[in-house]
């Protein structure tokens, strides 16, 4: 028996989202079981089956979210930008 992780697309164009897994002796029955478990009410436009053994997991918190701040990559570093714009616009209004 092999475990297959199941990814489902619910509407055309949506990403494939992990919904669970099935156990089956081989690919053909896995397809049947996945359909029954994850789309028997027609919830899916498409399913992907991936043998669990093929999945490479990265779950290391320090690797994924390093501890030193990286605000320069994100929006919060630029909250002041809005204030700068307001100030410049006001100065401009005074001049004209």
């Amino acid at each position: 028996m092999q475990i297959y992780e199941v990814f489902r697309q619910e509407r055309e164009g949506d990403p494939m989202v992990h919904v669970g897994n099935v156990q089956a002796p081989g690919d053909d029955l896995a397809r049947q079981y996945a359909r029954e478990v994850y789309s028997r009410r027609g919830e899916a436009t498409r399913l992907w089956l991936v043998p669990r053994a093929a999945i490479e997991e990265i779950g290391d918190a320090y690797f994924l979210r390093p501890p030193i701040e990286r605000s320069y990559r994100m929006g919060e570093a630029y909250r002041v930008t809005v204030q700068k714009r307001r100030q410049l616009a006001q100065e401009g209004a005074h001049e004209s």
Binding site: G13, P15, Y72, R73, M74, G75, A77, Y78, V80, T81, K84, R85, Q87, L88
Partner: peptide, 28 residues
Amino acid sequence: YARTMRRICWEEAFHLKHGEDIVLTAMM
């Protein structure tokens, strides 16, 4: 392509802020 664009647009929004901040800071 459409899905890739979601991620790209998300990141571009930070670039815009970064660029705008450079320009505004210099204009002040």
